[in-house]
Design a protein around this nucleic acid. Structure first.
Length: 329
DNA sequence: CTTAAACACCGCCATG
DNA sequence: AACATGGCGGTGTTTA
């Protein structure tokens, strides 16, 4: 359906041919984002500054062409560079060529920094007056070197609309998933997460990221119903109950739920119940069947079945594996 | 294990 | 026209 030429082009920008492994993995999220017909939605290309070709064992599409052309054509540029060198840390001066390269990026192009790449964006003035984050260990340095940047080390990532920055480690992954979700919805993002073998999208209830001036601030119309359900997991909850909380027909509720959360209401509910059961297994010595009851499962057999499906362990094995030893009284 | 009934999901389509 | 809604019903899943 979608011809290759019209796909969203993601250019992963690295320095001197080095793509840090922990930053290559997040970029794979884009490759794993598939449309309804199983077609790829993004083309990911790496792009190296400093002459050396990118060496990577990631399954990226490697576009062999001049870096300038790629930066000018890309819809999204992802900066995935190693930690800032001593020069940048001391003076705020980026490595040679970076400023010129960033200047080639058109005004409309989305720019994303992973981890410490935020230093390059800041040095180029692209973060002036904006919120930003970076690896927590270097957040102070970023704030000191670039006082015009509002550094917030506590969040996983900051979305300014066109310019986005992420903290270190798994946060880079969260940011990439966030972008996929913005572009194509929760369902596609969940699929990408699953294919990348990362935790599925966390529930919006405890969103750890902040969304600054995002144009489409979607107020999840089903989030009320979700938190309502979480407070009475022990009760039998039907689709109709949830839809009533949201003041929608079951049909509309089901549809919106899928769009917003990525899974069906019932799947979500079962998962919420399993999560609760896992907490109880980990932190208490309550009997299995009582846990089942408290989590809204009909009986221990049902709990066992769902826990097995989600974790591969039955309740007793799960408890043995994950329970924290009771602290001495 | 099998079975039956209840429930949930989602494409289809008329309607606002 | 373009879009959201929600009823219907076939198919699949969950429960008892």
């Amino acid at each position: 359906m979608t011809d290759v030429g019209s796909r969203h082009l993601v250019a992963v920008l690295v320095l001197d041919g080095v793509l840090p492994m922990d930053l290559g993995i997040p970029a794979r999220v884009f490759n794993a984002a598939l449309g309804p017909a199983g077609e790829q939605l993004y083309t990911v290309a790496t792009c190296s500054l400093g002459g050396r070709p990118v060496r990577t064992n990631q399954d990226f599409t490697i576009v062999v062409e001049h870096d300038e052309r790629l930066l000018a054509r890309a819809d999204t540029v992802v900066l995935a560079t190693q930690e800032p060198g001593p020069v940048l840390l001391a003076t705020g001066e980026p490595p040679a060529g970076v400023a010129a390269a960033l200047a080639l990026i058109p005004d409309r192009t989305r720019i994303v920094s992973l981890c410490t790449s935020a230093f390059l964006l800041a040095a180029a003035g692209l973060l002036d007056g904006l919120g930003a984050t970076t690896h927590w260990a270097l957040a102070d340095d970023l704030a000191r070197l670039f006082p015009r940047v509002a550094v917030d080390p506590r969040v996983l990532f900051v979305d300014n609309g066109r310019v986005l920055t992420s903290a270190g480690g798994a946060a880079a992954l969260d940011l990439c998933l966030h972008l996929v979700r913005r572009d194509h919805g929760a369902r596609v993002a969940n699929g990408a997460a699953r294919r990348c073998v990362v935790a599925p999208w966390r529930d919006g209830g405890q969103a750890q990221f902040i969304e600054r001036p995002v144009p489409e601030h979607d107020q999840d119309s089903t989030s009320r119903a979700r938190s309502w359900a979480l407070e009475r997991l022990a009760d039998p909850l039907t689709l109709e109950d949830l839809a009533r909380q949201a003041m929608m027909s079951t049909r509309t509720f089901t549809r919106r739920f899928r769009d917003e959360v990525g899974v069906s209401p019932h799947q979500w509910l079962v998962r919420a119940r399993v999560d609760r059961a896992r907490q109880l297994l980990e932190s208490t010595t309550i009997g299995i069947s009582q846990i089942a009851t408290e989590c809204g499962f009909a009986d221990a057999v049902t709990l066992r079945k769902h826990l097995l499906a989600e974790t591969g362990l039955n309740p007793t094995a799960y408890r043995l594996m994950y329970s924290t030893p009771a602290p001495a009284v």
